[in-house]
Design a protein around this nucleic acid. Structure first.
Lengths: 205, 205
DNA sequence: GAGATAAAAAGTGTCGACAGGTGACGGACT
DNA sequence: AGTCCGTCACCTGTCGACACTTTTTATCTC
């Protein structure tokens, strides 16, 4: 989507203007906006237009709280449905994360991290959960303003994922659920505390 | 929504036809369809139209699994944020449920039941959770084909709600979470087995 | 000069019409 | 008779224009 870096958060989208810029009518623009609204990326207010959602630290915390609950459920169910293919898939992601930790490539690690969690969710074989999880993650990804440079957390995070995999692999659903919940909540807290001081500075200045 | 009993599940929505029937243009119909798509009530396929989602027992089970996780989270957070106003609100719903149980008014009890859970979710003060929970509940409400006549379950359900309220009121978040999760999962299982008599027969036989 | 009101400008919601695509029916070929 | 292809009707996607709402601006009054 163009939102990646084209339109600032909080800004409103001018349908006519965008339509003229893209050489199309307003109808496709509207369709696209509704599609984005479906994923909670923009907010449509009646007779006032569509605004790019501006996510603050409070909402990040909320989303991670929800994500933790969903991850927990995914782990619980995934443990009941582990297959050789699933083991191989998760192992692949773990190897990648291990490599990126050694290289201290935070961005790549973060992507592999997301892939790992997504894989766990898929193993749960709950389509409703899969869709909801994707939606929540997309929303949480809206504030990529700060590249989260927490290199010392990488080792801790990697170890947590290994424990989660171990729990899943041994069929300990409740254990995996607890580990996942704790892991995501920790990550959320780290992210919020990394973001908050900057917003505080902005508010102060 | 008109879907309540007007259009059969799985059926496609003819925009022109509906527009003519409602004396409006196709644009509002499209808008409404996208709104419904946002809530996962209909499915839009490109160049093929919008179809009312046909939810089967499997998906009901999935949704209730997710709902249980969300309810659990809501209970955990609500216990941390209970206020006198919240106590009063929840008590009100409990009283209503008690009255409807005495009258054996299943439909009214069911509505009050939903209100109670929704109130708990609101007390959690997590807007993302509130929106997601509403969405999941709306989806789960898509198959009201069978009026769930389980009068003997009413007393059990009412008792469970009282226990949940007690846990919330005493600030025992993890207890409330466990009770809620169990309660919703039970309700989901009851609903699924009530909807799919064939699977019950299979399991019994 | 500040606040309020009213008019103008801007923008979204809606409308009727046209273009492109999809599914179905019918005919021809194997 | 079965299968494949071309044609056709129906429907969605898109377009430009109009109506209503919101916002801005300019004027008037205190």
């Amino acid at each position: 989507m163009i939102l990646a870096g084209k339109i600032k958060p909080g800004e409103r989208i001018n349908e006519s203007q965008l339509a003229a810029a893209l050489q199309v009518s307003r109808a496709p623009i509207r369709e696209a906006c509704r599609q984005l609204e479906k994923h909670n990326i923009v907010e449509v207010r009646t007779n006032r237009g569509t605004f790019v959602r501006n996510i603050d630290a409070k909402e990040v915390a909320e989303l991670y709280d929800v994500r933790a609950a969903l991850d927990s459920l995914a782990g619980e169910r995934a443990a009941e449905r582990m297959t050789p293919a699933a083991v191989q898939e998760l192992t692949k992601h773990l190897k990648l994360m291990e490599a990126f930790t050694a290289q201290e490539d935070v961005a790549a690690y973060y992507r592999a991290n997301l892939d790992f969690h997504m894989a766990v969710v898929r193993v749960s074989a709950n389509n409703s959960l899969i869709n909801l999880y994707e939606s929540v993650c997309k929303q949480a990804l809206l504030f990529r303003r700060t590249s989260l440079s927490l290199p010392n957390r990488l080792c801790v995070s990697l170890d947590q994922h290994k424990q989660i995999f171990s729990a899943l692999n041994s069929g300990r659903g409740d254990w995996a659920a607890a580990l996942l919940k704790n892991h995501v909540l920790e990550a959320g807290r780290a992210l919020v505390s990394a973001i908050e001081p900057k917003t505080m500075e902005l508010e102060a200045g």
